[in-house]
Computed example of a mutant assay.
Amino acid sequence: MGCGYCARARRLLDGKGVDYNEFDITMGGPEREEMTSRAPNARTVPQIFIGDKHVGGSDDLMALEREGKLDAMLQG
């Protein structure tokens, strides 16, 4: 909540009609533990996964879009 990077990633994915799951990990919990096990060096939010692949953060997602690679990843 209130995360500009999270909002930017949501806008991009929403604009593409992508279904996604979003987890608020600010207070810890099992989702945070899962994220840190899947992306151990990640310390910021959002951390974006497409399928089993860790994309990175919002800037990484936007870079994939600029490079024309995001749509192919989303299609699997």
Rank of each mutant, 00 (worst) to 15 (best):
E67K: 13
F23M: 02
D60N: 12
G76N: 13
M1K: 12
E34V: 05
C6P: 02
I25M: 11
D60P: 01
T44A: 08
M27I: 03
Y5V: 06
K16L: 11
A39W: 00
L70F: 05
M1T: 14
L64T: 00
R10Q: 11
G15V: 07
Q75S: 09
G15F: 05
S37F: 11
R38W: 07
F49P: 01
E67T: 03
G28Q: 14
D14I: 09
R8A: 14
A72Q: 13
F23Y: 15
D59H: 04
R11S: 15
A63V: 06
P46T: 15
D19N: 15
G17E: 06
T44V: 08
G29S: 12
F49W: 01
E34F: 00
L13N: 07
G57M: 05
Y20A: 05
G2I: 06
E22F: 00
P30S: 15
G28K: 09
L12G: 12
D24V: 02
L64G: 01
M27A: 14
A63Q: 10
V18C: 04
L61F: 05
C6F: 05
R8L: 10
E65N: 13
Y5W: 09
G51M: 06
P30D: 14
C3S: 15
G51R: 04
E67V: 01
R43C: 05
S37Q: 09
L64K: 00
I48S: 12
R32L: 13
T26H: 04
G57V: 02
D52L: 05
E65I: 03
R32Y: 03
E34G: 07
M1S: 15
I50S: 02
R8E: 12
G28T: 07
G28V: 07
R8Q: 14
M35H: 07
G17V: 10
D52S: 14
D19Y: 10
K69V: 02
L13P: 03
M27E: 13
L64R: 02
L74R: 10
D24C: 04
E22V: 04
K53Q: 13
G57Y: 03
A39K: 09
Y20K: 08
N41P: 04
I48L: 14
M1E: 13
E22P: 00
M62S: 10
S37W: 07
L12N: 06
P30F: 01
N21Q: 15
A72C: 01
T44Q: 13
P30G: 03
A72M: 08
L70H: 11
P40I: 09
T44N: 08
A9W: 10
E34P: 03
A9P: 13
C3V: 12
I50L: 00
G15Q: 06
